[in-house]
Design a protein around this nucleic acid. Structure first.
Lengths: 147, 147
DNA sequence: ATACCTGCAAAGGTTTTGCACATAC
DNA sequence: GTATGTGCAAAACCTTTGCAGGTAT
């Protein structure tokens, strides 16, 4: 979460053109704590920027994500993936090829109860991310663009 | 992960008709550890069941999920959600309304390194799930079907 | 026998892409 | 001035849905 000056500097440093739209998307997102979808951001921004297009919001979020300024929650790869193991366990997700490995570690099963006012917690899962054995060795075989 | 007899018993107990397709989907998924997508399961199964349709795979996965026999990884709600906070933090996700709350808790930032052979871990995130304050109080206002 | 499931095809919703014009540097 | 971004519309995907015929109990 950066102020306008930091944003300008960061774009300049990374040699990425800073457009009005990019600044607007970043500032709108920074001002919210509800983890909006691309569509939701678009709806908020179009009041102030009527010519803004949804496609630009998507492209901008991708750019900001590549720059490390924005995080994605939930679906890193839009498609749902399934698992016949419903017992508590956790996952390691390869950011290069999308491979998901199961992790069984009792130390991860009991985590401190988070302090989220009024939230009735029924469970949790831990996602580790990084490169799987194959992708760590052979970066050229990556099938998913690293974002 | 249940054997065929356990599966039959579970369907009987829950009074859900056990069809060939449902058994096939469950057994295919049980035999894999790669967390396949619906499409991937369909591709594997159509060799043995040429008349099987993708729609049935989707419907079956939903049924199995409702029965608690199958877990979903990643996108609980297909849409990607964004966050301007890229610093390490965690989330509480409401399974009823989709609300996502930020959690900052240093105790969750340093977790035991998982034992995943060859995996180069670069980070992790913890997702708690349950009901947010509002939904815990007012179950009738739920906007997302609880799956 | 009856309720529910399957397959098909069409629809719905989200995200990506190609292209002409506009803008940042 | 040039490379890159934007807006528009269409396309590509994933998932859901409606309906007629079929199947489990």
């Amino acid at each position: 979460m950066k102020n306008r000056e930091e944003v300008r500097t960061l774009f300049k440093t990374k040699k990425v053109p800073l457009t009005h739209q990019r600044l607007a998307v970043y500032e709108e997102l920074s001002g919210r704590r509800d983890h909006p979808s691309a569509e939701a951001l678009y709806e908020s921004l179009r009041k102030a920027y009527p010519s803004l297009s949804l496609a630009t919001v998507y492209k901008t979020l991708q750019t900001l994500h590549e720059m490390g300024m924005v995080a994605r929650v939930d679906s890193p790869a839009a498609q749902a993936r399934y698992d016949a193991i419903v017992e508590t366990h956790h996952h390691a997700v390869c950011t290069a090829c999308g491979r998901i490995e199961d992790l069984f570690d009792p130390r991860l099963d009991a985590l401190p109860e988070p302090k989220a006012a009024g939230f009735v917690i029924s469970g949790h899962s831990v996602h580790f991310h990084g490169l799987c054995a194959k992708c760590a060795k052979a970066p050229s075989t990556r099938t998913i663009k690293e974002k």
